[in-house]
């Protein structure tokens, strides 16, 4: 057992003692009931379980939760799909996903949303040239599996957000 604290979507949790091999996914889903973060493969292959880790240096990255012990996130600040919208106001990316019919069953959506959001924030810090945009999106999303839509609409949705504000995301 290890003493564990974490900040999720701005809210502090813990300290609590956790089993060392409890996955972060099960901490979220079984301990907290936060089932917006999905369980797909348990092997780090589909990334439907990915969440956002906000690093102290102001950068962010995604992380799978099914193959990482919860205790490895001790002291970190993370964001999950439940934390994107502010009240009833969805983020631009959430709206774009809906308007583009980016998902069908929606089970992979949390992972794509987190990955897309991290990409947007990364491009705000370090924009890419317009010519590199499609490749940049493709690389960013390629770790995520979607079995319904064939990925195209996710890509279109992310791209639409970027192209709507080129001065913000593009060099």
């Amino acid at each position: 057992m290890t003493r564990f604290s974490i900040t999720i979507n701005g809210e502090a949790h813990g300290p609590v003692d956790l089993r060392d091999d409890l996955s972060m996914n099960d901490y979220l889903r079984e301990h907290l009931g936060m089932t917006g973060t999905k369980f797909g493969c348990g092997a780090g292959q589909c990334l439907s379980c990915a969440i956002i880790v906000d690093e102290p240096d102001g950068t962010s990255r995604t992380s799978p939760t099914c193959i990482v012990p919860a205790v490895n996130f001790d002291g970190m600040a993370i964001r999950t799909v439940e934390g994107h919208a502010k009240g009833d106001e969805l983020t631009t990316l959430q709206k774009a996903f809906i308007e583009h019919f980016a998902f069908q069953c929606g089970y992979c959506t949390a992972g794509f949303l987190n990955e897309g959001q991290v990409l947007l924030e990364r491009l705000e810090r370090s924009p890419v040239a317009r010519a590199e945009l499609e490749t940049t999106i493709a690389e960013a999303l390629d770790g995520h599996l979607c079995r319904c839509t064939g990925y195209i609409k996710y890509h279109e949705a992310v791209r639409s957000v970027i192209l709507a504000e080129p001065q913000r995301y593009l060099a």
Partner: peptide, 14 residues
Amino acid sequence: LGRIDGEPKVTGAK
């Protein structure tokens, strides 16, 4: 525009 089950699916609803 969009779909009827869109909002719950992008907000992680049960």
